[in-house]
Computed example of a mutant assay.
Amino acid sequence: MFSKAKKDSEINLEQHELLEHAQVRIKQKKRLYAHFIIFLVGSVFLVLINKILKYGDTYNWFIWAITFWAFLFIMHLINVFVTQKFMGVDWERSQREKLVKKQKLRISELQKEIETDFPISQINKKKED
């Protein structure tokens, strides 16, 4: 009976984690799409400032500004669609499991070291004396 309840709680926890991950991904994609729209509107605005308002008319500075902004947008795109695939929920889970395993190994090594340095039989003999 307890094992069924435990399994149900694990399933609910996993579903909750999946839902949270989906919500995070939706926010990331929404921000990326908003960035793209702002990039398009901003690029047109920069061209208009340079060409129509004649601000810095002797030099086409808007090309450098748009190129730099495009680079930032591409970095954002890579972060959302490439990096998150490789370093997503499964990667986080495996990293967490590795760290827990290392900690457990270190704890067991420390326990062995303590047991060899301070055997329980010596402690019990000192208590009896």
Rank of each mutant, 00 (worst) to 15 (best):
P119K: 06
A22I: 11
F62S: 09
V47I: 14
R25E: 14
S121K: 04
I66L: 05
F118L: 04
I11P: 01
K29T: 11
Q122V: 03
K51G: 00
S121P: 00
I123H: 01
Q28N: 13
V24Q: 13
E10R: 13
I52F: 08
A5Q: 12
Q28P: 00
F118R: 03
G42V: 04
K51D: 02
S94Q: 12
I52V: 09
E92F: 12
F2W: 13
L105V: 06
F86I: 01
L77E: 06
K102C: 05
S121Y: 03
M87I: 06
K112P: 01
W64Q: 13
G88R: 07
A34G: 01
I49S: 05
Q111D: 06
K125P: 01
A22P: 03
E20H: 13
V82W: 11
K126N: 05
L46W: 15
R31E: 15
R106F: 06
E113T: 05
F68D: 01
Q95P: 02
L53Q: 08
I66Q: 07
S108P: 01
L105Q: 10
M87W: 09
F39L: 14
I74L: 12
V80K: 08
Q23V: 05
V41C: 09
I26K: 15
I37E: 00
E17F: 13
W61A: 10
Y55W: 15
I49C: 08
I66E: 08
F36K: 04
L13A: 14
K54V: 00
L13H: 13
